[in-house]
Design a protein around this nucleic acid. Sequence first.
DNA 1: GTTGAAATGTACTGGTC
DNA 2: GACCAGTACATTTCAAC
Lengths: 161, 161
Amino acid sequence: MDRLDKKILRLLQEDATLAVADIAKRVGLSTTPCWRRIQKLEEDGVIRRRVAVLDPVKVNLGVTAFVAIRTNSHSTEWLRRFAEVVGDFPEVMEFYRMSGEVDYLLRVVVPDIAAYDAFYKRLISRIEIRDVSSSFAMEQIKYTTELPLDYLALEKEPRES
Amino acid sequence: MDRLDKKILRLLQEDATLAVADIAKRVGLSTTPCWRRIQKLEEDGVIRRRVAVLDPVKVNLGVTAFVAIRTNSHSTEWLRRFAEVVGDFPEVMEFYRMSGEVDYLLRVVVPDIAAYDAFYKRLISRIEIRDVSSSFAMEQIKYTTELPLDYLALEKEPRES
DNA sequence: GTTGAAATGTACTGGTC
DNA sequence: GACCAGTACATTTCAAC
């Protein structure tokens, strides 16, 4: 992974519709090696997928809720089932196991508070949870899928002398 | 927005590399009208963009932190500047204004705890914040960019008789 | 909405240096 | 890595229905 791969990733994170020839021009490469680099980044799983990002409001998903969950201590089998049940809800877009006070954190999208309530009831009916606490986002100030590539360690590049 | 648009959106949210002819086949349309629908969805801003999704671990971003922020009451101008400063950090992938206890919630990605600490110091040096509380994700169980389209209201379709 | 076709562009492969 | 060529396929636009 060198400076050029990083540039390619930056571009594709912004706009995955760019033509290979375009990308090549912008990173200062000809199309063939640029194309090969992109293939390799996909093979290596650095690029996971290319997706369309929709406007949540325009598909009737204006409300984002964060759900902090505390569970009782349970077997690993229970935890596996818990993860499966929760992850199966399409409203749950993000799901983390946390350190500290809260055991799990969910980001949930729904049209409105009533739909959140319905979601909540379905959730607790499917799995026992010790404590659930919901907070609502009033405004989404920033949402990006672009990972910051500033921390990416580069391979040493050949040097003069 | 009808049943077919919804199907198209579902497919493109999963894989934006699909050829129009493929999508057309799967939704039961021929390519021309299918292509027109996709164009319209883009014009209307339902489809915001098409992006490459990278593997965070493979670009050295294994740590996700959630940062809950409480501010003092401030002018709208101060709030504007606050939003700008915070949003400018590329490590901040999501940024919400919240209801309830916490005023703002951030999702931050960094390589490790040390980098989080450095980020934290840079953040508080750039803007005064009353209270900051960080929690770390031990595991990302689910992360998707796919919005659930189940809540999408459809236009009435023509009926027999 | 359909089909078919034409024009253009792009992806991909393989070869040269 | 650059550059050139060739094929196969995609996108895009158009015309006729």
